[in-house]
Design a binder for these strands. Structure first.
Length: 514
RNA sequence: GGCCCGUUCGUCUAGGGGUUAGGACACCAGAUUUUCAUUCUGGUAACAGGGGUUCGAUUCCCCUACGGGCUACCA
């Protein structure tokens, strides 16, 4: 076999957001390309003008960029095999469609939508095992095989709408080897004379895909399992076009399934389960509906990449945490699973927690500062740095830090009265007032000093520290749990702690009266 | 319906003719944390069913069941 350069492509349609299965396909393509010192190409498959969505292409490019899996060639990066948008390659396909007609491997079909529907209905009623447009039925339809040459020419000259269909053999086994699944074989009797060229002058996926993969010298096609049934068709196309020796090797990836129940994971599952299934926030231009993305949800690109890579692939060891470089080093198509994987939100969360802990406090603080400011807190990176140090390990997402930190900026707007009244004893009022006064006298307001100071005071008053800590926490933060309360006090500072104790005690005084 | 693909703990998976069927997430318990979370330690938990082949099958073959995909002038 000749040494071909490894060239792979990710070929999304710009019909909306990129969903997580697509992201994984892109990732596997990227990994395989880099593993083999090859090229990773993005090709935009926008042959369906009806489904084209404005902004979708940008979204795809931005998502891949966010994840750090950038292509070597693409519509925006350019490259020697462009253009990389199929709509801009329109003329190319026509030539090959014509070539197939001329060689007798394709034909014109003039059937209307109604005629096609009628045919299928008739076959259903006749209890035919399948309702395909192929050797079994094509001679009953209006096409260049049933019409005579003059009729065909007349229709063509009159600009009657037509499509070009592939002419499949009647009964032939087509087989090919899939790197992931092994030998696949399908008989043409069960296949369709698929439309290759549409009446609007655009090719269908099947033609465009094969032509472009050939012209772009693609060596491996790595795509979703939904393409497995049409792979034999593509094999035939390579054969009829005379490119069989340049045919790429196929790898059909297992699908990503819904976490609950059955079926392929969809965008709607994300909304339904309150969990992102797309990389970035996406606003549907038609409806204005927003789909939440990983990035905005506080996911780290490294975490998304890692858990996605493991959804259907592993390196055969017990290693689960991979950097992108490590994934490249150990990636192989042969180790991709055959069966679909249910998406596991919990594991994704765990990965994110893991990668969040790996980030330095400085890094996190720098990233979070704008968010804090956007939330209306006037603060400094220095202050955020302290908060991050305290909150990081209890957070799964960067935003968790934001959410847990309100009491670092504002005194409690409300207190957890249920727990407060359960833990509070009338005699605490005097104890707390005295405790507060000890803070006034402190000159070193560090966590350890506050702790030592408090323990000493409470011991002198013969009050069990355990009975008093929970109310103290609520007075300071309003809530009954969180990080070390002494740490919190130290960050808040002496005067703020004293002030909060005062307002807190006033609140309790009011509670007691009721 | 037809065609194609698949099936190991709840989930993601390792393994592969003889194993105490391994790991991770989740879950449960204990320890640490005067709270909660984190962390640490331990634990529960799986070869879809039936036939073969074989001295021996979870592993190989067949059937069934179940799951998934495709079945458009969508990709």
């Amino acid at each position: 076999m000749s040494q071909r350069k490894t060239r792979v492509r990710f070929a999304p349609s710009p019909t909306g957001t990129l969903h997580i299965g697509g992201v994984r396909t892109a990732l596997y393509n990227y990994l395989f390309a880099h593993k083999n010192n090859g090229d990773f190409i993005i090709r935009i498959e926008d042959t369906d003008q009806q489904r084209f969505v404005e902004g979708a292409e940008n979204y795809i490019m931005e998502a891949l960029n966010w994840l750090g899996i950038n292509p070597t060639e693409s519509p925006v990066h350019g490259g020697p095999f462009g253009p990389y948008r199929q709509s801009e390659r329109k003329e190319i396909y026509q030539k090959y469609a014509q070539q197939l007609v001329d060689s007798g491997n394709a034909y014109y079909a003039f059937d209307t939508a109604a005629e096609l529907e009628e045919m299928r209905k008739r076959l259903v009623e006749a209890k035919s095992s399948n309702q395909q447009y192929n050797a079994a039925t094509r001679m009953e339809m209006r096409n260049s095989l049933t019409l005579n040459v003059e009729e065909v020419n007349q229709l063509l000259e009159a600009h009657k709408p037509y499509v070009i269909r592939i002419k499949l053999p009647e009964n032939e086994n087509v087989h090919f080897t899939d790197i992931i699944r092994g030998d696949i074989s399908v008989n043409t009797a069960n296949m369709d004379d698929k439309v290759l060229f549409k009446s609007d002058g655009m090719p269908t996926y099947h033609l465009a895909n094969v032509v472009d993969d050939y012209l772009m010298e693609i060596s491996h096609v790595i795509r979703g399992e939904e393409w497995l049934p049409s792979a034999p068709l593509h094999v035939l196309l390579y054969r009829y076009l005379g490119w069989e020796d340049k045919m790429p090797q196929f790898s059909h990836l297992p699908l990503i399934l819904k976490p609950d129940g059955n079926g392929k994971l969809s965008k709607r599952d994300g909304d339904r389960l309150g969990f992102p299934v797309v990389p970035l926030d996406w606003t549907d231009p038609a409806t204005g509906n927003i789909t939440n993305g990983y990035r905005e949800h506080g996911y780290l690109p490294k975490a998304v990449l890692n858990f996605l890579a493991l959804l259907g692939w592993n390196d055969g060891t017990e290693k689960e945490v991979f950097s992108l470089e490590e994934m490249i080093a150990s990636f192989s198509l042969e180790r991709i699973n055959k069966s679909g994987a249910k998406f596991d939100f919990e594991k994704a969360k765990w990965f994110n927690h893991h990668y969040l802990q790996l980030m330095s406090n400085d890094e996190l603080a720098a990233e979070l500062l704008p968010k804090f400011i956007a939330n209306g807190y006037s603060t400094t990176e220095e202050y955020i740095l302290k908060i991050v140090g305290l909150l990081k390990e209890r957070s799964n997402f960067t935003d968790d830090i934001l959410k847990q930190s309100t009491f670092f900026f504002d005194p409690p707007a409300a207190y957890d009265d249920a727990i407060l009244s359960k833990k509070w004893k009338p005699q605490f009022m005097e104890v707390f007032k005295g405790w507060k006064d000890t803070f006034t006298e402190m000159c070193d307001f560090t966590p350890s000093q506050i702790e030592v100071n408090s323990k000493m005071y409470l011991e002198n008053r013969e009050v069990g520290i355990g009975s008093v800590m929970q109310p103290f926490r609520i007075l300071i933060t309003g809530v009954s749990n969180g990080p070390s309360v002494f740490e919190i006090c130290s960050i808040l500072g002496q005067s703020e702690v004293i002030a909060r104790m005062e307002t807190g005690l006033n609140h309790i005084a009011k509670l007691e009266k009721v």
